[in-house]
């Protein structure tokens, strides 16, 4: 089901969490809402789920206005960052909870869900007897049990260790494709957002700074904030105004158009990051393949880039 958020406003006392945020998510889309901590992304999810009332604005799910409805009457399901499993219930009963409320419980359906998330046979365990990754899967199975047309995921991978995160992320993507569910995932991790989502909405100061495909937000950031938040692009002043310039688009060598001095270099595994300073004092970062020899700090180099690599920014 599609999701439409219209001019949402929310203040917590004097603090403004959401400032007229609007968002449109077509049915079957995997949307990542990307923002720094405090950008209002969790508040947005809690308002869509119905846990917090909005000060102003509307929420439409599948074209239907749900703004005034309590959580239990909204056709969406939420997967909590802390998983929020019921500690006194078994894995089986945790997953069955929503089915029992709807009167559609069957042991076979719970078994199917356990198989879907790869936890077959763990029915009788209590949440405390599971690893973090297993708890995450139970939370996912529980949220998917009633086949919600819209699934809200609050930092679903944040509590997992790095090794598990990539594999679980890929599995989320697979489940989203298989179930054709609209996913709205909140995250602070740009790699995660770019890798998993069809669309990325970057939140800044309670509003959507840009909402586009991962390729688009990465290659053509709309604002200075988006450019800096996604991969820390260089921001340079040109006669045409402020522009973003990705480090990988800057060539470092003996020939070029802009003279600069190497400030320091850092090894990042696949690449070297070269921090330079131009004659007019602008700091620029470039990346070099790990196979090539990096210039030494203090050396004078020439930088160059194609005019097409410059992305003009608004504000």
């Amino acid at each position: 089901m599609s999701l439409r958020v219209e001019a949402l406003r929310k203040n917590f006392g004097a603090a403004r969490a959401l400032d007229g945020l609007s968002l449109e998510v077509p049915a079957g889309t995997f949307l990542a809402v990307l923002g720094a901590s405090g950008s209002g992304k969790s508040t947005l999810l809690r308002i869509i789920a119905g846990f917090e009332p909005a000060d102003a604005g509307r929420i439409l799910i599948g074209g239907e206005d749900v703004t005034g409805l309590p959580p239990q009457r909204r056709p969406c399901a939420m997967m909590f960052q802390s998983y929020a499993l019921f500690p006194h219930l078994s894995v089986h009963e945790n997953i069955a909870y929503g089915l029992r409320r709807a009167g559609t419980y069957s042991a076979a359906r719970v078994s199917d869900l356990l198989a879907l998330v790869g936890l077959s046979g763990l029915d009788a365990r209590r949440p405390a007897q599971l690893s973090g990754g297993q708890q995450q899967r139970v939370a996912l199975a529980r949220a998917l049990a009633r086949k919600p047309p819209l699934l809200l995921l609050d930092e679903p991978l944040a509590a997992l260790d790095a090794g598990l995160r990539a594999a679980t992320g890929a599995e989320l993507r697979r489940l989203q494709r298989e179930t054709q569910t609209t996913f709205v995932m909140v995250t602070h991790d740009q790699q995660e957002a770019l890798a998993l989502a069809d669309q990325v909405a970057v939140l800044h100061e309670g509003r959507v700074a840009q909402c586009a495909s991962p390729q688009e937000v990465y290659a053509r950031p709309a604002t200075r904030f988006v450019a800096e938040f996604l991969g820390a692009a260089n921001i340079i002043n040109t006669p045409a105004g402020l522009c973003a310039l990705r480090p990988e688009h800057i060539r470092v060598g003996p020939t070029g158009t802009v003279p600069a001095t190497v400030q320091h270099i850092a090894f990042r595994g696949e690449t070297w990051v070269i921090a330079c300073r131009t004659a007019d004092g602008t700091a620029l970062r470039s990346v070099l393949s790990a196979q090539s020899a990096p210039p030494a700090p203090g050396v004078a180099v020439m930088l160059s880039w194609d005019a097409a690599a410059l992305v003009p920014l608004c504000a």
């Binding site: 239990q72 909204r74 939420m78 909590f80 929020a84 909870y97 409320r101 009633r146």
Partner: peptide, 18 residues
């Protein structure tokens, strides 16, 4: 108490008394 499980229950369709 942790309020999240109660929110999860409401989200899964439970009325307040449930």
């Amino acid at each position: 108490r942790d309020r999240a499980p109660e929110e999860a229950a409401a989200d899964l369709g439970a009325a307040p008394f449930t």
